[in-house]
Amino acid sequence: MSTSLTQKLTATAASPASAGRGRGAGRRTDPGTIALGSRRARPAYVALAPYFLLFAIFSAIPIGFTMFLAFTDWRGIGDWNLVGLTNFGYLLEDPLFWKALSNTLILWVMTTIPCLTLATLVALGLNSAVRFSTVYRVAYLVPNITSLVAMGILFSSIFSSNFGIVNALLNSVGLESVRWLQSEWGIKVAISTLSAWSFVGYNAMIILAGLQSVEKQVYEAAQLDGAGPVRTFFSITVPMLRPIIMFITIMSTIGSLQSFTEAQVMTSSQGGGASSAGGVGNSGLTLVLYFYSVAFQENRYGYGATIAWGVMVVVILFTIINWVATRERSR
């Protein structure tokens, strides 16, 4: 092309240098990028098109439609009516929704705290033990990559009342069997054990990366100042890990608030429908499992859409809480 040289010259002049210049230039061009005017930007738009086309069809439009559905009483077949805020009023007074919300929050605490504590310990161990580190990493990560359906089935047997290995262990030390899968707290222990087990390795790898990014000079300086290992951990390692802790707390929270598979698989043998979802006394009913039962087992699409909005509010609320909590302390 004949214009390529001038293009090149304008591009270099505009790209890295313009970052610090006037506001007008900075707003248009990010540092380290090549500025494309509206005429030459066509290939960039073509490159973005497939992503945004799929996004529009399978995310944006459906999300808009979910908002609309939440104001209707549609059940999949037959007529539907606009019912105003009825669904939202019903949601606020729906004992099952609150049950699901409280279960989800309890499971979140029961999963995240042991999971992140164990992950920190594993990461600290791996940070100093150099030998076999790849073997350890693989062993700790394998639970994270395996199917939760298969593992849910396995954990159902591990926690089974009649023959589970957990009860066998309890019996062998003289304790009574617990009906894990059929009791209010038992099912929560079973579900959160599965979730925590599958995510310890993943979180440990992230914390490990954070640990290894702390400059060794910082540790050497602390040693010269006479700081012991405990002091070093709390005064240097923990503050340096703050961004990592924030990252994994938020990611674990978003994941945990939307957990579905563990609860679905471990309580599915106990009948269908929303009222019996989540096992005995709805003890294992999570928000997303409730959403699934209402929308796809009872075909109450209007109310299901309302629950989906409820899930979104909870997720965003807790993300903000987490973000503020982990950020405030760093100051």
Binding site: I34, A35, G37, S59, I63
Partner: peptide
């Protein structure tokens, strides 16, 4: 690697989909 009109808003849209739970789109 490129700057073009509308880039900021388009990227913001990508980032927002991280926060939104996928259940919001499931029924439609």
């Amino acid at each position: 690697k490129f700057s073009f009109p509308g880039k900021r808003i388009l990227f913001l849209v990508v980032m927002l989909t991280f926060l939104l739970p996928s259940q919001l789109a499931t029924i439609p």
